[in-house]
Design a protein around this nucleic acid. Sequence first.
DNA 1: CTTGACATGTTATCTTATTACATACGATAT
DNA 2: ATATCGTATGTAATAAGATAACATGTCAAG
Lengths: 187, 187
Amino acid sequence: MSDPIQPAPGAVAKGPGVKSTGADDPGRAFHCHDHGHCTTEALGRAEALAAARGLRMTPVRRRTLEILLEQHRAMGAYEVLDRLAEDGFGKQPPVAYRALEFLVEQGFAHRIRRLNAFAACAHPGEAHRPVFLICTGCNAIAEAPGARVSEALKLAARDVDFAIDRASVEAVGLCPACQSAAPEIRA
Amino acid sequence: MSDPIQPAPGAVAKGPGVKSTGADDPGRAFHCHDHGHCTTEALGRAEALAAARGLRMTPVRRRTLEILLEQHRAMGAYEVLDRLAEDGFGKQPPVAYRALEFLVEQGFAHRIRRLNAFAACAHPGEAHRPVFLICTGCNAIAEAPGARVSEALKLAARDVDFAIDRASVEAVGLCPACQSAAPEIRA
DNA sequence: CTTGACATGTTATCTTATTACATACGATAT
DNA sequence: ATATCGTATGTAATAAGATAACATGTCAAG
């Protein structure tokens, strides 16, 4: 049960200009932050919400969320499955898919369609329409506030009389740290 | 070589309030329109653009685009592959994937991540950042102008210093016609 | 303690996508 | 006209992602 520590691997900037940020920073996945706290809080919130909704946060489900929370990146269902199997849970795809489905339904995790993968939600419980920012440099994923995007989307749909049920907005590019790093490579 | 006719199957509204629309209507996929013209034009533009770019619009590529153009909906790679095989082209996945990749790269088709599928571009050649509207009722797909959404997205990214490379905006819901049809079913 | 709803586990299968390698085609330069 | 090189096509094999169907286990209400 490796409980990975502070600077989450692959999600933490080391370069210059990196500032430590608090839990409410939208782009915190891209910066140094107290990841232990970040994890604990998300887990706690999920537990509380599940309880409040009369749902069961079972061992597989909790562990699945823990696994996703370890890093600020998306994981494929099979990657999650392997981890679960290591921990003594079932070894077959539905085990992972069901837990992930539950987490997504409850808003504790998100599905990143572009990557066919899943990522822990950074703001469980808060109604939000996140825009996903996917860094191709370090694979980190951040959720940016998507209220405005969502609004623009709604308008665009209304112009053609389309009734939106749900939407996904995913952008790939470079996080601040990888922008600093990449040019050296390209040059 | 079935050259599918006017009202594209699955893409054309039959209900009340349906108006015939011109080729420049953003949501035309959801309405009655001259699909033959719509197809011919897109194909012609693609040909011209390929030529202008010094690229080869080979038989598989052209046929692949034709297949996508038949209907205003997304098709899976294997569905396209089957059609290609019928026409005497190769029967293995790379045949379809390569042609589709070419079309997407050249902006003649789009990849709809949410559906793991592909759809012909409604505006080849015109620089545009489409928002995809996917109707769950009839599977039609329309491209709405995404300039504003794109702008909002850019701002959201800038707030966290993220450099967007490309983005996908996909909304699922009901097209005008299916909105009229659905309530009867639900009731 | 039984029952019913829900959760977990397994098998099997399906769909989507890629890697690797062989063959054919087409434009260019001899 | 033909050698050549880059590009396109074809095939086989397999990886990666996802679901259906069914059996078993668990927990809490009655």
